[in-house]
Design a binder for these strands. Structure first.
Lengths: 187, 187
DNA sequence: ACCTGAACACCGTTCAAGT
DNA sequence: ACCTGAACACCGTTCAAGT
């Protein structure tokens, strides 16, 4: 994490800005070569700044994903534990649905030392206190982990990317309440 | 659906066989050009037989997906309605997990008249009687559709393709029973 | 009717050469 | 140190020419 020379930093920011526009138009599978061209840099420059497509995606969505993470504490302050968690999961879903393909990067990083911002980790940290509170209020099963909750939201986002006819909000509702048998005898 | 001339049929079958091997090695994103070469045909021939990658994928998995669909009636005969449905959903999940990327094609066809076998439609038809029976036994909420049930299974498969660390069976269990609050007062 | 080989327009990665 | 432009090895699609 060295500090960049002025011209390198300028290049980096132009790449991120160009990528942001390209992702909005074509999803996160947009051509890296076209992004480099839009940014006015060579493609080799883009590859040195971002060793993988995922690193570029994380950089582009760092701010917006961070904002969603930050919303967790606001919701915790304004709602009871159960609704706070469920509203926040809705917010995460809305965020990924608004940016096609973003969900593919909100998964634990396979690459180990990929340095820089990791959206998945930010969301995990944000949901942890919400989940603890919801469990304390008896609104969520005690055996559910933060990773599992995020995975379900992510799974629904991925599906929505592939099937435009799906109703993601409805599916999230089903996953929360379950479509199968109730187990009322235990609480 | 005209009947093919003998040599055209032979080409088609060689393509499907080559694709089957390639998909097993590289997932459904395997190179179509390489598949054509393995099959000993020109790439133009592949494209006339299969107008899209999805058509080829459907052809390759037609038999195995059909077998999973057929298992529905067997499970219905051997288990009570609730377990029959849940075991079958597990079978669908196992099938997609065993073939990386297959889940991306088990989604309603966007292309309208794409002729031939459609795995999604086959699974929908297979799950319908299971779902009706499970609802009748009070094991599944009455407002859930076949499409929604399949969508949740599919969503989990897609996630597993992106996140090798996920536990798909566990996530399906969570989606069925729900991780959120029980609503015992209604039945 | 069905196929082939070649041409086309793309893509991501890498490397030598510049400043 | 950082960048550029070019070279490389790919990809899917399409079309003219064969049988």
């Amino acid at each position: 994490m060295k500090t960049l020379r002025a011209d390198a930093l300028r290049s980096r920011e132009r790449i991120v800005r160009a990528a942001e526009a390209a992702f909005r138009r074509h999803g996160v599978d947009a051509s890296l070569e076209a992004i480099a061209k839009d940014a006015g840099v060579g493609s080799a420059t883009l590859h040195r700044h971002f060793r993988s497509r995922r690193e570029l995606v994380e950089a582009v969505f760092q701010d917006s994903t961070g904002a969603v993470a930050a919303e967790a504490s606001r919701l915790a302050a304004e709602h009871p534990p159960g609704p706070a968690l469920f509203h926040w999961l809705q917010a995460v879903l809305d965020h990924t649905l608004a940016n096609r393909g973003l969900a593919t990067t909100l998964v634990p990083a396979a690459d180990e030392h990929h340095g820089g911002f990791c959206g998945h980790d930010a969301l995990e940290a944000a949901v942890a206190p919400l989940l603890v509170a919801a469990k304390g209020a008896g609104q969520v099963r005690a055996d559910v982990t933060v990773g599992e909750v995020l995975s379900l939201v992510n799974a629904i986002s991925l599906l929505a990317d592939h099937d435009p006819g799906a109703d993601p909000e409805r599916l999230l509702g089903l996953a929360i309440t379950g479509f199968g048998p109730r187990q009322c005898e235990q609480h």
